[in-house]
Amino acid sequence: MTDILNAFVLFANFVFVPGLAYGAQLALGALGITLIYAVLRFSNFAHGDTMAFGAMCVILITWGMQAMGISAGPLPTALLALPFGILGAVALCLVFDRTVYRFYREQRAVPVVFVIASVGVMFMTNGLTRLIIGPDDQRFADGERFIITARDFKEMTGLAEGLAFRTTQAITIVVAVIVVIALFRFLNHSRMGKAMRAYSDNEDLALLSGINPDRVVLYTWIIAGALATIAGTLYGLDKSFKPFTYFQLLLPIFASAIVGGIGNPVGAIAGGFIIAFSEVTVTYAYKKFVSYFGWETDGLLQLLSTDYKFAVSFVILVLVLLIRPTGLFRGKVI
């Protein structure tokens, strides 16, 4: 019995809890991608770098707050800085919308032109981020590191395996839940949210019924910028902030959005967790886990080395595209 409990604690510690936090981060990123896709109708390649830019704003303000002696007690100061960081990222998104995307919207350009433009925006955002904060790793997490450390857990339960629960993981999950609830209330109940959904469903019909497209686009960028900053900050708190990793996050985030059904917010969340758990479970070495069931082996029992985690999200992506191109939750297919 203890063995089985140990096995499950081990699994929870190395697969379930990290997967949950990572999934929440991916889901928030994918929500941004999916909203832009639903309303503006293109795949935004700059989203990963928007996340990096937003997180960078948060980091700079966090450092300022730390220097002034402001802190959130046991919680990371970054949470206090988050609203200001969101302002930064939203401003960036709106500037690029005014200077770049609006022109093509008025021209009714084909989606691929928007995608190429977003590549240009990606370069510029990436350059800005590196110019301001540099390409290196930055740590900005402070406050309590753990809610439960592995050792406390072992002492509490008397098990051989510990279950560590980091503050950043808890914050990620709590913040993600709050953000998702707020977003869905907004989309389903507010006037603007309904207008956005109508615009996404059928642009011409929405315009006929008097919806102001400029306001829809404005709100979309505000929400996308906010989501990107929150996702970027949570990822940076949980792991570490490095501009290049955000660019690499683009692939799992796109995979999450498409697997769930691009353009569909529920799908983005489900997709985020599917991708995150697949990545973690496939790259975890099960050697110790099975040893609790009395199976001793020499091999690591690792299906794929951790460096192949991108391959996992990609294979799922391809399978979904081939078998069910609309995604699990019927997204848009144009």
């Binding site: 989606p111 691929v112 690499q248 683009l250 796109f254 995979a255 990609f314 391809v318």
Partner: peptide, 22 residues
């Protein structure tokens, strides 16, 4: 279609590099 192809090829290039590195 074009958007998906872009994402798919982006992913494939990352995988090719992962294989070469490992």
């Amino acid at each position: 279609r074009s958007d998906y192809l872009a994402i798919a090829t982006l992913g494939i290039s990352e995988i090719l590099l992962a294989v070469i590195k490992n």
